[in-house]
C-alpha cells in the first residue's frame, strides 16, 4: 500500500487549500496517508496504539498550526518526518518502555523473501544467501532500504527524513548493494542457473 507515485501536483494544490482553511483537504491527506504512516511507524515499535496516538498528534498539530505551516510540495515526506519526530520524542520520554540500551528506536523489518516457487537446490541456496545478506544489514541500512525500495523515495527525501547528508545516505545504500553484489553468480555457472531463474519469474508474473 505504499501508494505508488504520490501525486505531487495534486498534493501541493490541496496542501495550499488546507493551509487556507479547507477541512476537506485536511481529511483527504488523512485518508490518503494514514495507511502508509501506520505501516511506517510500525517499523519502530510493535505498539499499534502508540503509533495511532502519534498519528493523531501529527494531524492535530498540523490542524492547530496550519496558519503557521509552510508550503510544501511533498506532503507525504512532511507527514513521515512529523511522525518520526513525534515517535522519537515519546521514545525519549519513555526510554524505559522501549529500548533500554539504545536511545533511538531501532528500525526493524521482517522481509518477505519470495518463498513461493523455490524449486531447485540452486534457488534454495540463493534464497538462503539473500536471507543471510538481509539479516546482516544494519538498522540504518534497513531504514534506508525501506525508504528507497519500499516507499520508493528519492535520495533528497531520504536525506531529509534521516537527517543525513547525501554522501552518508549514498554510503549506506552502497554498502548494502555491495553485499547484494556478492550474490552475483560465478561466471561459469551462470547459464544454467540464469535460465531456471528466468523461468521462475515468468511463472510468478503470470
Amino acid at each position: 500500500m505504499s501508494a505508488g507515485s504520490p501525486d505531487p501536483v495534486e498534493d501541493k494544490l490541496l496542501w495550499d487549500k488546507f493551509l487556507s482553511g479547507d477541512d476537506k483537504a485536511y481529511a483527504y491527506f488523512y485518508k490518503k496517508y494514514v495507511g502508509d504512516l501506520f505501516s511506517y511507524g510500525m517499523r519502530f515499535t510493535t505498539d499499534r496504539e502508540l503509533i495511532k496516538d502519534c498519528i493523531q498528534d501529527v494531524f492535530v498539530k498540523i490542524y492547530s498550526n496550519r496558519s503557521r505551516l509552510n508550503k510544501t510540495d511533498h506532503v507525504k515526506l512532511y507527514l513521515f518526518i512529523s511522525l518520526k519526530n513525534t515517535l522519537f520524542n515519546v521514545f525519549q520520554k519513555d526510554k524505559a518502555f522501549y529500548h533500554i540500551d539504545t536511545i533511538e528506536p531501532v528500525f526493524s523489518v521482517e522481509y518477505t523473501i519470495e518463498d513461493c516457487m523455490i524449486a531447485g537446490e540452486m534457488e534454495l541456496e540463493r534464497e538462503e544467501k539473500m536471507r543471510r545478506i538481509l539479516d546482516s544489514l544494519t538498522p540504518r541500512q534497513r531504514e534506508v532500504i525501506y525508504y528507497r525500495y519500499v516507499e520508493m523515495m528519492d535520495m533528497k527525501c531520504i536525506c531529509e527524513l534521516m537527517d543525513m547528508n547525501y554522501q552518508s545516505v549514498q554510503n549506506l545504500i552502497q554498502r548494502a548493494i555491495r553485499k547484494v553484489k556478492t550474490l552475483s553468480p560465478a561466471r561459469d555457472k551462470v547459464v544454467l542457473s540464469v535460465n531456471k531463474y528466468t523461468v521462475k519469474f515468468k511463472d510468478k508474473n503470470n
Binding site: 494514514v34 495511532k52 523489518v109 521482517e110 519470495e114 532500504i145
Partner: peptide, 11 residues
Amino acid sequence: IRSVQVRPERI
C-alpha cells in the same frame, strides 16, 4: 527489491 519488500502492518 522484491526481497526487501516488507509485509506492511496494516491499519
